[in-house]
Simulated assay, not measured.
Amino acid sequence: MNPTTMSPLMPILSAGRHRNPRRGACFMEFASYLAGERWSDHPKCTHAGLANLARMVNDCTSDAARNELAPMIPSVIGLTTDDVRLDMLLALEASAAALPVAFEERQRSLAVGALVLEATLDAQGGMPDDMRGRLHAAFSSAPAAERWARGFLGRYLRKLPREMSARHCRCLVQSAVDGIALACVDDNDARLRRLLKRGIELAHQFVDTERVAEQTASAATAPSGTVSRTADREYASA
């Protein structure tokens, strides 16, 4: 959707929550509007972790650049999954994006969270290679934060947790997005936009994989001969 061609009756993207479309809309309120759901910034049509990322990016993006997020709104509709790893990967993606530019104190907390997430994901079967590469590149740009985090965890934890709650993941996302928004760089808005785009791509990977698995299971349990009879009818009508 091109924000420059929106109807004047459509809500305008702005920060925060809004009581109704006449007062504006945040990213996820607009998604609820397009999905035909009740007006809300927590619609059912989108995974809660991805919606959390979208709300944060919406609120932390400058007023001048916020409408550039609008074309991505339709792409979050229908992105839902029960896989707990998505929250962790979103948090890891956000941490990797913020580590190179955030202030030192924020870098340290993000590095701790990222190391715990890495260990947790490894305990649950590992994380994608491209994600691990981005995390290691982020640590390379903030080596002091990584050293501090490893030292902190070594002193205060005998072993790293084997799980991380959705609430903790979403708090880490909020800290990362805020860190990018406050960083002393000249492309804060572009970095936030790229992070949201990557988060949407991650969610698509989970949802698409689940749909393929469901279709495969459905085909496997279909009555014998169903497919061939359909094929015969199509052949006969050709």
Rank of each mutant, 00 (worst) to 15 (best):
G126Y: 10
A144D: 15
M127S: 03
S75E: 11
N2D: 14
F30Y: 13
L90K: 03
V57K: 10
I12E: 05
L86R: 01
A123K: 12
L192K: 08
S140Y: 10
T230D: 12
D232Y: 12
A102P: 08
A137W: 04
S228R: 12
L115M: 14
V185G: 00
D187H: 12
G16F: 07
D82P: 00
S95A: 15
V212N: 06
T61R: 03
G78R: 12
K44M: 04
A65L: 00
D208C: 03
K197C: 09
A51V: 04
I200C: 07
S165A: 08
M10G: 03
E146S: 10
A94S: 11
R170N: 10
L153F: 05
A98V: 01
D59I: 06
D178R: 15
Y33H: 07
H18F: 12
I12R: 08
L79C: 04
T61I: 14
F27K: 03
Y235W: 12
V76I: 05
E163S: 15
E210Y: 09
D122F: 14
H47P: 05
A149R: 04
P8W: 12
V212H: 06
C60Y: 13
W148C: 07
S109H: 04
L110A: 09
N58C: 15
R194S: 13
P21H: 01
I73T: 02
G133M: 10
D189I: 06
F206G: 03
R193G: 02
A220R: 13
A149C: 05
T120M: 02
L86E: 01
G225I: 02
L9A: 04
C171I: 11
I73V: 13
A217D: 06
W39S: 00
A222S: 09
G49K: 00
C171N: 06
R108W: 09
A97G: 04
R193K: 09
L117F: 09
R229E: 11
E214Y: 07
G113E: 00
E93W: 04
A238L: 13
N20R: 08
A97R: 11
L157T: 07
S14A: 10
R85L: 03
L182T: 06
K44Q: 08
L160W: 04
H18L: 06
F30E: 00
V185K: 00
M131T: 10
F152D: 05
L86Q: 02
D187C: 11
L157I: 10
Y156V: 07
L160Q: 11
Q174W: 02
N188C: 08
D232P: 06
L86G: 01
Q215D: 09
L90G: 05
A213G: 08
P143K: 01
Y235F: 11
A213C: 09
H204G: 01
A97C: 08
Y33F: 05
R211F: 03
V101I: 15
K159I: 03
A114E: 06
F139W: 07
S165H: 09
A142F: 14
F152L: 03
L79Q: 02
L34P: 14
R233E: 12
I180A: 02
E104G: 03
P223Q: 03
S40V: 01
Q107L: 13
A54C: 08
A222K: 06
L117G: 08
R229N: 09
L99S: 03
A142H: 11
A219Q: 06
L50F: 08
R17W: 15
W148M: 07
R158F: 14
A144F: 15
I73K: 02
P223T: 05
